[in-house]
Simulated scan of single mutants.
Amino acid sequence: MFTAGPVDGAVNLPLSELRNRPQALNPEQKIWVYCQVGQRAYYATRVLRSNGFNAYNLSDGFKTIRP
Rank of each mutant, 00 (worst) to 15 (best):
S16I: 05
E28R: 10
Y43R: 15
F62R: 11
P27Y: 13
N57Y: 04
P27L: 09
L25C: 08
P14W: 07
R40Q: 15
R40W: 00
S59F: 06
L58Q: 11
V33D: 01
N54Q: 15
A24E: 14
Y42M: 14
D60L: 06
R21Q: 02
F62Y: 15
Y34T: 13
I31R: 04
V11F: 11
P27T: 07
A44R: 07
I31E: 01
N12I: 05
Y42T: 13
P22G: 02
V47K: 07
Y43E: 15
V11S: 06
G38L: 01
Y34G: 08
N20Y: 03
R46N: 09
P27M: 07
Q29Y: 07
V47R: 07
E28L: 06
E17W: 00
A41G: 15
D60I: 03
N51H: 12
R49N: 14
F53H: 03
K30A: 07
R19V: 00
L18C: 04
I31P: 02
L25A: 03
G52W: 11
P14C: 02
L15Y: 06
K63G: 10
N57T: 05
A41Q: 10
R46P: 01
E17P: 01
P27F: 14
L18A: 04
S59C: 03
I31S: 04
Y34F: 09
K30P: 00
A24W: 13
P27E: 07
Y34V: 11
A24N: 11
S16C: 05
Q36N: 13
A41L: 12
S59H: 08
L15D: 05
Y56I: 03
N51D: 04
N54P: 04
Y43M: 15
V11R: 06
Y42N: 12
V11A: 08
D60C: 05
L13K: 09
L58T: 08
Y56N: 09
R49L: 09
R21L: 01
N12K: 06
G52D: 06
R46G: 06
Y43L: 13
N12D: 14
P22C: 00
K30F: 01
A55W: 04
N26D: 14
C35S: 09
N54Y: 13
R46Y: 00
L58G: 12
D60Q: 10
A55K: 07
N12M: 08
I31L: 13
L13A: 09
P14N: 08
V11H: 08
R40G: 02
R40L: 14
A41S: 15
S50D: 15
V37P: 00
Y42F: 13
R46K: 14
Q39V: 13
Q39R: 14
L18I: 03
L13H: 10
Q23G: 03
C35W: 04
V37H: 11
S50Q: 15
Q29I: 04
V47N: 06
L58A: 12
F53G: 00
S59R: 13
N26G: 03
R46T: 10
G61Y: 01
Y42H: 12
K63I: 11
G38N: 05
V37K: 10
T45Y: 05
Q39C: 05
C35Y: 07
S59Y: 08
V37M: 14
A55M: 06
A41R: 09
G52T: 05
